[in-house]
Write a protein that binds this DNA or RNA. Sequence first.
DNA 1: CATGAATGAGTCTTCATTCAT
DNA 2: CATGAATGAAGACTCATTCAT
Lengths: 234, 234, 234, 234
Amino acid sequence: MTKTGKTDDDAVPRRSMRRLREKENRCNTILKAAETLFGQKGYHQTSIEEIADLAEVSTGAVYFYFKNKEELLTKLMQEIGHDLRKAVGEEYQKSEFSLDSFRNVAFAFLGDFCLRHPEKIAIFFRESVGQSVEVEEQRKRVFVKLTSDIKDAIIRISRGQGRNFATERSPELIAVCIVGIYERIACHYLLWQDHSTEVLQMAEESAAFMLGGVNSLFAPDVPKTGRREKKAPK
Amino acid sequence: MTKTGKTDDDAVPRRSMRRLREKENRCNTILKAAETLFGQKGYHQTSIEEIADLAEVSTGAVYFYFKNKEELLTKLMQEIGHDLRKAVGEEYQKSEFSLDSFRNVAFAFLGDFCLRHPEKIAIFFRESVGQSVEVEEQRKRVFVKLTSDIKDAIIRISRGQGRNFATERSPELIAVCIVGIYERIACHYLLWQDHSTEVLQMAEESAAFMLGGVNSLFAPDVPKTGRREKKAPK
Amino acid sequence: MTKTGKTDDDAVPRRSMRRLREKENRCNTILKAAETLFGQKGYHQTSIEEIADLAEVSTGAVYFYFKNKEELLTKLMQEIGHDLRKAVGEEYQKSEFSLDSFRNVAFAFLGDFCLRHPEKIAIFFRESVGQSVEVEEQRKRVFVKLTSDIKDAIIRISRGQGRNFATERSPELIAVCIVGIYERIACHYLLWQDHSTEVLQMAEESAAFMLGGVNSLFAPDVPKTGRREKKAPK
Amino acid sequence: MTKTGKTDDDAVPRRSMRRLREKENRCNTILKAAETLFGQKGYHQTSIEEIADLAEVSTGAVYFYFKNKEELLTKLMQEIGHDLRKAVGEEYQKSEFSLDSFRNVAFAFLGDFCLRHPEKIAIFFRESVGQSVEVEEQRKRVFVKLTSDIKDAIIRISRGQGRNFATERSPELIAVCIVGIYERIACHYLLWQDHSTEVLQMAEESAAFMLGGVNSLFAPDVPKTGRREKKAPK
DNA sequence: CATGAATGAGTCTTCATTCAT
DNA sequence: CATGAATGAAGACTCATTCAT
């Protein structure tokens, strides 16, 4: 994405590059500190000073890189949203939008992402909720994108199966349901209670659940040489 | 205090009665005010003074009835949790734990509860999230109960169908999924965007999704000594 | 102004009265503290905490009575403006708008007000200047009122003398000049250097200066039976 | 200022010269930027960064040329004071310390200086007031010089008229009054309200006012048999 | 000399909570 | 019981100033 070719931009070379990298580092260090603390203690329970301390910078530095505390959360949400979409998206790709996708994505999300990034989950599904109008807006945006991704995948999958959906809205609704399932399982079994050992089984079963759900929303099969459908009259 | 009763249970007579009633009223008035404001402006954005003003009492009065601001939220969550469980539970009852339950409960929740009590939904699914350890604990408790209710219903339904589940854990997992689906649909389509007119269609489809999901987690039918079940061969 | 007759308003009696008085006291104590500190150390150099300390209240109490620090200054300016106008206005009254007014008012202002309330002078002529748009607005309002008072007095004096002014605008301009003279003398001789002992002489001479200035802006005398005018010799 | 004859001091040649010039430019650019912003937004409302941005230099550069923010204001005041004294002084010269001086100076100040340099007026009469002990000190110094200039002019004028003053202090007091009049007229009619079109009339009338004032403070004329003036013996 | 990232002390302001009346 | 004035700890944020590069 951020391909900065080596060709023609010697205008900002050597020193600036290091500066840039350092700047990005500082920025990221602060962001990481915020992520850790928000995830552990909660957004409101974390003060800027604590973040600065953990990042080993001054409070002023935090404000040099971020407009205010809210932006810290907002940026974090963007990042997490990005990671999540990437993880999920790649898994759909790898599964070639087959029916196995559900299982694979469930494993990727629950068995991998959640276990590796509990703070991200905590922030995304807990700390960023209901904090302010602005944050809620951002949250919505990220969710909508994620949902949209899944919806698109669903559509591709259905096409792969040569099936249509009951209604126009079905794919989106399914996506919303799936996101809800992921969210709640993550909260219920990982944030609230540590069932991390059984997470694979959860992934397995939830995938089955979702698959069944999706199947139910396919439009009735219209077999070309269809003889009896339901209620075949005489 | 002013015990002047003549008989024996006049110990709490007239005035006290009114006191009691008034007290309960007071308490409820305050709770209602909090509900309204928390739902509209958000928990942190609402001050005790605002609640007191809306309830037409003093700030001190709020602290007479509630230990602190948190308890206001906590009590509200209890109440909302209770209402929700009642609404859902009654619907399962009415549906006699048939497979239609899913549809009926979906309608009861999305088409009725959510539309009638948007603030409750906002508080339960948004404002009470990630506010503090205590609140999160309470939130968990309520969710666990609700999930448990649904799990029990699921089990009864499965029994009614003469089916078992794939694993021991399936019923609970299904319940968690269902709660997640409700939650996300409510947030996505009612809190974030007003699709209240199309809510019935959502209920319909989400019910189908859930039903399909549940079906997928039934253990494979093993009709050993089975007489006729469905599709009795031969 | 605040006539609270004893007749019909027993609705807010006894206790409330004391409350009110106490409230007003607290309010005034804080205001006095602010006046002292603003006058001595300057507006920006004074923190709310210092004010609270001097007033022997908590910082919260300051914010209970005043919206913010700015309002403290604004209220002070109003009060000072009021006092000043009263002092000046009463002196014009007492002098019956004669030509002696200039002398008497100069004495009242320089010889009395300034000496008795140096902090008020400091706040009005120094600390309230150029602090913020809001404060400047207030400052303008007070100055305009004071100027207007003096203008009206000037007009009455001129009438008493049976004279008219050179132009329509003259009275206002004179008032502006007079205010400027007072201001600068106060700053120059009292805030910057302590010439308080010679203040009476200043008052005397500045009054003469103003009187001469006013005379110069009277329209040329048009003596009814006037033959030759000035210095008709012989 | 830095008159460097061509003879022996080639020690600081070419490049250094440019450096010097550039340095002076830099310095002035920053000063101009500060002047503009202080005049427009106010001293406290202007940050060093904004000044640096407007001057197209770094914040560090500002601190290379000026000790601190205060010095920026201080230098500005010096400059403005200098300009003002020059404008006024030249006008007295041109008028040859005649009685017309008052009129001419009024025109020079109100009709020319104020209209051409509103920011200077804003800084001198508004933004530099009551900011800190140091600034106030500087302010006093400049005012004292300006007042002294005018006092000297007044004395020359009186001599030109062959008049003496009522008291020793009169000339200074008159100067103070005159400065006050200028200040207040500028604030009232130019900073607070834009009466710039009627400024000439103001100049006219205020000059008349001042002239009248001065006349009033001349000692009573006693020239009757006056041939020789002072101390005619015998 | 110039830069601009980094510092951190300093302040205002909020608000849940208490308690004298 | 009710009131609401008073508390004061806590925290976000600003910005003049410095200094390594």
